[in-house]
Design a protein around this nucleic acid. Structure first.
Lengths: 202, 202, 202, 202
DNA sequence: CATTAAGCGAGACGGTACGTCTAGTCTTATG
DNA sequence: CATAAGACTAGACGTACCGTCTCGCTTAATG
């Protein structure tokens, strides 16, 4: 038996998976080595051993390549935790988020894309629809299950809580440039938990 | 009598204030009209009626022009409030911050610069040193004075609080792209106050 | 009844005559519409509804297609005259040559090929062997028969005469771009006849 | 003391003569080495050590570069002869023309341009106006002076004679590809002279 | 009657050159 | 001595064709 997609140089199989993979890897490498400005279509083509036309055939711009390169890395790296204990889950999740954003290759891709999205509304829309909102939804599930378990009150404002927890992490990464140590993320959760305890005791 | 600085085409008066102002205004206009990618040195020179060399003489790059164009707009627009009532001050400040970031021209410049800073560590450093950290300091003063007044406990973690309050606003602006209505900023302050109340009651 | 070669999409009949004809016609049309630079393999394939590979299977280059498209048009259009009266025959022949070169589709193809032959020695060789020399030979026959009839002297230099008669027509077409009216071709023949008369009278 | 035009890299001197000369020489060299198809803007730029933009600033296409490269070479190489003896002058001129067209670098440029002119009416017009017609005029002067001297009759058709003399040479070069030996050009003149003798004797 | 094999339309591929755009450098003449 | 002007080298942009390479379909001849 043979693999589903065979190696080929352009034919009726349709798109070459080898070329696609080489492009995405080249884009990733260039971003890591030279930064966003160093990611050029010509550079990607040269490094991937691919013709420029092949790139333009499948991607409308370099940011789409990076979106593609991001792929499901976010889903993989930021799988929410559900152990039945909200505060522990949140601590683990925010630690993981901080590490993803500040210390991983796909995190660097995401930061570059969020940066570029400030100049490019189309990219912003695609980035949100394809990556940020789905991840936000996975984060929301964590909190909603805690509501279901009774760890959080019924009327709990999930969106506000996520903006305060996750937003603080992004803020340090994107705006202040401060490191995001475990002490910080744990501190966020501690404050969150304290607040809930207060509410519950009323 | 005439204005202090006369228009001139190269002379012994020193730097031309007219050229400087024209460049900054052209950069601002181009950003507003065409977005960040539409801001080019050539475009600025053409619109400002200035030679490219004059721009390169005084600014090392286009982002420095935008930094310069931002000027003291942030200081002016985001003057912290100090009425002696922390929660009211915070509500007013965050409303103003949200409006600045989402609904003003200098806010658009700041967003573009923060976006570009994700690709450009030098810009990131200058942006933080010249604008973000001074503003952060002004914000911190608000809280420190509340501590001095006894509205907040002595060991209060000012940095964590700002990351949670201000960070949530930036997060919506830069990442989720959600609007930042008054209800949201007031909600942030309400949660903050509730938390403090709980702490105080312990 | 059916045509000898039926329409087919690839089979054991061998080469598709329909595809061949469509390619030649498309090439001709493109040359007429857009000029030589507008004749591209991709354009021919698209217009002929034929795959590029089919073109490359049968023709090594686009100029070979035009050579093929020229076909026997030159032979047909430039059939020499032999009425037994040399000066009348030459007048008719040169008029026909002028009209072919300046006012017919295959003449335009020939001009394009002669032009391209200046850049392409292989094309030059093929063009001469397949079209120009055979036609030259047919022209020479006209003169040789006049020699046989005694209209021209035995030692008459056929090649020189053709270079002067035919060459002058090509020169106007290819180099000066002047029109080639009947008065011109008739003038050529008149001068030729006068010269022979002079020689004969010696 | 300094040379009239100083070396510079773009400035208010206006156009760089060094860049201009390097481009023309590179184009010439490429034509000689690789033929017309080997003359590309990129190739010229690379060989001349010049930016593509500099080429596009001054020449609209590669054929204009070749037109420019041809310069006054034709005038120089094809200076008509005027010794007072028409037949000798014509022999010398046609020998020189044959050598220019078949055995010189600028002759190769001219052949390439005449070839390309078959595909490009604009080039054809410029080539004629700038080079071919002026040269034709210089040729005509030779004959007109012979008329003035009484070597040719008053009503002599200069244009027809040039088409037959010069045209035959171009025809061999451009169409038949035959060599153009001295015997051939001398034969042309001999036939021309014989014809005139006959006319004169009438 | 099923198999085989050749020509076909289709179209992706690695390339080269195109002509355009902007960057950043350099050299003047002007005031 | 800073300016406006503008030519310069450099290099990425996105497009057009090149010539090559499968691929799956159609069809007649073959076994």
């Amino acid at each position: 038996m043979s693999s589903e997609v065979r190696r080929h140089h352009g034919n009726r199989h349709g798109r070459s998976e080898a070329a696609r993979a080489a492009v995405l890897e080249a884009a990733d490498d260039l971003l890591a080595e030279k930064g966003f400005a160093g990611v050029t279509i010509e550079g990607i083509a040269a490094r991937a051993g691919v013709a420029k036309q092949t790139i333009y055939r499948w991607w409308p711009s370099k940011v789409e390549i990076l979106l593609d390169a991001l792929g499901s890395d976010m889903v993989t790296a930021l799988e929410p935790v559900d152990s039945g204990d909200l505060s522990g889950d949140l601590r683990r999740y925010l630690r993981r988020l901080a590490r993803f954003l500040t210390g991983s290759d796909p995190g660097a891709v995401l930061r570059a894309l969020v940066g570029q999205a400030q100049h490019d509304p189309d990219l912003a829309a695609r980035l949100r629809v394809e990556h940020l909102q789905p991840q936000r939804e996975r984060e929301a599930v964590m909190l909603r299950e805690a509501i279901a378990r009774g760890e959080l009150p019924a009327g709990f404002d999930v969106d506000l809580a996520l903006d305060r927890l996750v937003g603080a992490v992004y803020y340090r990464v994107l705006v202040t440039g401060e490191p995001v140590p475990v002490a910080f993320t744990d501190g966020l959760v501690a404050a969150f938990v304290a607040e809930q305890g207060q509410s519950a005791s009323r």
